[in-house]
Amino acid sequence: METRLDAKSLPLYLDTAATTRIAPEVLAAMVEQLENPRTFANPSSSAHAQGQAAAAVVAGARAEVAAEFGCDPDEVIFTAGATEANNLALRGLALAHAEQGRHLITSRIEHHAVLACCESLERDGFEVSYLPPDRWGRIPPEAVEAAIRPDTLLISLMHTNNETGVLQPIEDVAALAAEHGVLLHVDAAQAAGKLRIRLDETPIDLLSISAHKFHGPKGIGCLIVRNRRQLRLRPLMYGGGQEFGLRPGTLPTHQIVGLSAALTLAASRRGCDLTHVAQLKRHFIQSLATRLKIQIHGHPEQASPYILNLSLDGIGSDALINQLAGVLAIASGSACSSGTIEPSHVLRSMGIEGADLYGAVRISFDRAHSLEDIATAVDNIVAAARRLQELS
Rank of each mutant, 00 (worst) to 15 (best):
S337M: 15
I224G: 01
T3C: 14
L206A: 11
P132E: 09
Q168R: 04
T275N: 09
L292Q: 01
E163C: 11
T290E: 15
G354Q: 04
H299G: 11
Q230F: 08
R226V: 15
A360T: 04
L93M: 12
H283M: 14
L259P: 14
L184E: 00
A174Y: 05
H369N: 11
D172H: 10
G193H: 09
S44I: 00
N36S: 13
A385I: 03
N42D: 15
D15S: 15
P203T: 13
E127T: 15
T202H: 00
L371G: 06
R387A: 01
P300V: 12
G351H: 11
V327M: 05
P235W: 08
A331Y: 06
P217Y: 01
Q230I: 13
R38W: 15
R234N: 05
Q302G: 03
G258Q: 12
S304H: 14
L324Y: 14
T160I: 14
E372L: 02
E171Q: 10
G298Y: 06
A47D: 13
A355E: 13
Q168I: 09
T20W: 02
I296E: 13
E243I: 06
I330W: 15
L236K: 10
T79N: 04
G193K: 10
F365P: 04
T340R: 05
T376I: 05
L195S: 07
G359E: 12
H159S: 09
P235V: 07
A96K: 12
A175I: 12
Q230M: 03
E2K: 13
V114S: 01
R138E: 14
A188G: 08
I363F: 08
I209R: 01
F284D: 03
L104D: 02
L274D: 11
A53D: 12
G339E: 03
L167I: 04
L34G: 03
E145V: 01
E110H: 03
I22L: 14
S210P: 00
Y306L: 08
V186I: 04
L320N: 04
V346H: 04
K293Y: 10
L308S: 01
E75R: 03
A188Q: 03
E163V: 13
I294G: 07
Q255W: 05
I197G: 01
P140F: 09
F40E: 05
G258L: 12
N227R: 14
G351C: 06
E171H: 09
Y358S: 08
T164N: 01
D172Q: 15
S344K: 07
I77N: 02
A303M: 05
G314N: 00
A63F: 06
S334D: 07
Q190R: 07
P43T: 00
I363R: 09
Q100R: 13
T106S: 00
Q230D: 08
L246T: 02
A383V: 00
Q33D: 09
